[in-house]
Design a protein around this nucleic acid. Sequence first.
DNA 1: CGAGAACTTGAACAGGGTCAAGATGCGTGG
DNA 2: CCACGCATCTTGACCCTGTTCAAGTTCTCG
Lengths: 243, 243
Amino acid sequence: MSIQQSPFARKLGAFVALSGEELSALDRLHGRRKTFPAGRDIVHEGQVNHSAYILASGWVCSYKLLSGGTRQIVDFQIPGDFLGLRSVLFRTADHNIEPVTKVEASEVPAADLLATFGKTPRLATAVLWAASRDEAMVVEHLVGIGRRDAKERTAHFLLELGARLKLVGLATASGYACPLSQYMLADALGLSAVHINRELRELREDGLVTFQHGKVEIHDLDGLVALADFDKTYLDHDGPLLK
Amino acid sequence: MSIQQSPFARKLGAFVALSGEELSALDRLHGRRKTFPAGRDIVHEGQVNHSAYILASGWVCSYKLLSGGTRQIVDFQIPGDFLGLRSVLFRTADHNIEPVTKVEASEVPAADLLATFGKTPRLATAVLWAASRDEAMVVEHLVGIGRRDAKERTAHFLLELGARLKLVGLATASGYACPLSQYMLADALGLSAVHINRELRELREDGLVTFQHGKVEIHDLDGLVALADFDKTYLDHDGPLLK
DNA sequence: CGAGAACTTGAACAGGGTCAAGATGCGTGG
DNA sequence: CCACGCATCTTGACCCTGTTCAAGTTCTCG
């Protein structure tokens, strides 16, 4: 795969028009390629001196555990996403990262990352932009959990995932492969697994979406968008800001 | 006020040891000082070509409005905080910013910010760190709304605010001045104003905190921390990562 | 083919919302 | 300095969304 085609490079390029030199600096950032099995945490809260990763294939989730034993999934990451940036900057990880499926990712050592920022400031700005986009997603989840009811929230979530996957070529307007269990959906949406199940059934019975057999099939996109009050502005790249 | 004493410079300095030159670049970033009255939005969602701001005095809140007319407050900003960074990087604002009180802030034009990053890469890294800290707060709010009940959530919120205010010298271990109404608390915590009122009464009757007359008084810090399962790691600066 | 994981459904319950009515505080103008 | 009016706070009663518990059922994969 050529440098220009890496999904992460493509994403950053959407904000900052990267020069050949910047692209190769970005390429050198990709360290050792590692594989992780599903289910065993890559990084756990409180861990120090870990690396960041650029996700090449598979899905992971970032979550926090509460004292009562419940967990809240903050976000899922899909191919092309950057993992653990925040934890590297803080030195000690503030959340857990668990592979949902088998995962392949390039390690990005903390020292390399910081050194690269010093030498390639536009890359630092691009990463800041990418981090802001992640924050925008977390904000949208917060709004959903705080003020949307279970059905809207579920619909919104499925639409957001679809929009993100489409950007990296893993979804079409009619659906996508989705390895998440209903338990994970529940932990991401702040609901119980039982209730998620009921909401999914309703969405199916309304002819809007199905979430079954590892696939999401969107049967009525407009209806779903209307129900969820979905506005994908916060996910969009509208061309480089920095020329 | 000397450069080194600006709360924003102090905050960035906690992550990156800033040189004299970097500090003066940071200082030049502070543009025109502006004053905003309480209640009228500084930035509204969808707005383009607005500036970012560094908050000098007063409180503001960042919020989103939903189609149903409800709103979700994402965070409050206090003196020393950076406002609207995300919206500047996206060119079009993805949330509203409303002053809670009368506010004084230095304007930071988008172009100046990006130019400074190019010339002073360590400053870009420092701002990335500050943005990550903000994201960590949003994540903590998400976890609270998703998995904590109303009482824990309220307690957690009051503790977080206290910890943040203490960092800029606006709180002591026993309390702080707080201009928020119960309605704003409700919109921040994803609860109804009526229910917030009941929870505040309970916290008061339990001898933990009072939230009255524009003041928060903490009567039993340990009890509150235990109730809220509060771990302030995510707010801490533990010394410069970049020397 | 068997066993555990994931999904499904029902029934009872509770946390928090909504509606309604009053009390309290506070800024403004007279 | 007082009085009026509005915003904020307070409390009660009832209701609804989503939880919990429990008992199957259906996948999936070794």
